[in-house]
Amino acid sequence: MQCKAAVLETAPGPLVISDVDLDSPGPNEILIRTAAAGVCHSDLHFMEAKYPHPLPAVLGHESAGVIEAVGSAVTGLAPGDHVITCLSVFCGHCEYCTTGRPNLCTKEDVVRPADGPQRLSRGGEPMHQFLNTSSFAECMLVHEHAAVKIRPDMPLDKAALIGCGVTTGLGAVFNTAGVRPGETVAVIGCGGIGLAAIQGAAIAGAGRVIAVDRLPGKLRLATKFGATDVVDASDVDAAQAVLELTSGGVEHAFEAVGLASAAEQSFQMLRPGGTATIIGIIPFGEKISLDGYSFLRERKIQGSTMGSNRFRVDMPRYVDMYLSGKLDLDSMISGTTALAGINEAYENLKRGEVARQLITFG
């Protein structure tokens, strides 16, 4: 079948709206009619060539939709099911999957063989699928383990946010860091992922949640999501400000910007025994520098991949949190646009003017 999609032709470069062809579902694949897709900063890294990816490729990885067709071997999913997609597609039998860490799956048997027909093509020439999803398109053809069925009463535009940003931010707090009630938390960066981390800390019962950003508007938004204190990093040293606010540092600091300097600051604002969790994607090849003495006081730094998720368990729980009023997704949406407006949406993102934007499909 043919559908409209946003294609990255060259990097760095803009996205080009083009007709692309999707193959019929293979035995373990599903065809999804896309309802909404989030405009995530991760795609921007590839558009700006900060991370490499084979081209041409259909970008997008944060989405929700309705299944239209399933392959002959698919179980547990059927046409008409509402689903959220996730880039953490899992094979189910590698070492990481079988030890309870499917977010680190080696991706065995979840992509098509290179010497056969691909899921995406254009004019008879194969195209590359982005992060096993390619959701900036009217339809997606994905492995069945790249989607999870959700309640039909969940609005699909809000559900799309759970596909990456919300799961990454909440999961970093709940799964990777294991924030406990009463602990102090700082979050650097109040974009979509940072706001999700702030919400997660509040839901987890953190005693103080300190939001750090350079934009006053984002700091105001952070207080809506549970921040108890804010630090405007545009005119103060953020690490020093957090140390002073807490009389010695926080138990948990989360970096949600994707900058080496912010990662260093997250470590510097820890109290002895504290943990810094790096959520943002630091550009390929960049390094961070830390004070070696700080490790003698048992400070730690760690990475978090997609919130250490087990998405087929986590995402339905986040849906329940939203529908019960515990998780605010509505306020995270700064605006929506059709596929044709996607490059303007990324310009808004680059200016730091938004929390989360959605591409919606009629």
Rank of each mutant, 00 (worst) to 15 (best):
R122S: 13
Q118Y: 04
I162A: 01
G248H: 10
E255S: 13
T176K: 15
N343V: 06
G194K: 06
V7G: 00
H145Y: 01
L141G: 04
S294P: 02
V16Q: 00
S308N: 14
A35Y: 11
A253G: 15
P102K: 06
D21G: 09
H45P: 11
R151K: 08
Q129T: 15
I203W: 14
R312A: 01
V39G: 06
G123H: 03
L296R: 12
P54A: 12
S334W: 06
D320Y: 00
Y346R: 00
G182L: 11
A57C: 15
A6Y: 00
I162C: 10
V39Q: 03
H41Y: 12
Q129R: 04
L219K: 05
G303S: 12
P181H: 11
I359G: 06
Y51C: 02
L215N: 15
N132W: 03
V110I: 15
R356Q: 12
V70F: 08
E144V: 00
G217K: 05
A345P: 11
A260F: 07
H82R: 09
K300V: 07
Q199Y: 11
D43H: 04
I342W: 01
L120Q: 05
G292F: 12
A57F: 03
F254C: 04
S121F: 10
I288S: 09
G116W: 05
Q265H: 04
K300T: 15
Y96G: 02
M47I: 06
T223A: 14
G273F: 14
R101L: 11
A201H: 07
R317T: 03
V110A: 02
E251K: 05
P113G: 14
E29S: 00
L120A: 09
M332L: 15
A6W: 03
S135Q: 03
A114F: 09
A159L: 09
D81H: 11
L290S: 09
V39P: 13
M127T: 07
R119F: 01
Y322V: 10
N103G: 06
F46P: 02
K149H: 01
S324L: 04
I281Q: 11
G13E: 10
K149F: 00
Q268T: 00
S331L: 05
L31T: 11
T98A: 05
S308M: 07
G292E: 02
D314F: 03
D157Y: 07
A64E: 05
M306E: 13
T98H: 01
C91D: 06
L141M: 07
F225V: 06
M127G: 02
D157I: 05
D232T: 07
V70T: 10
V209S: 05
P272Y: 07
S261F: 00
D232S: 04
T275E: 09
A146N: 01
G100D: 01
D237V: 02
E347I: 00
R151Q: 08
I198M: 12
P316F: 02
V142D: 03
H82Q: 10
V250R: 09
G362E: 15
Y322T: 14
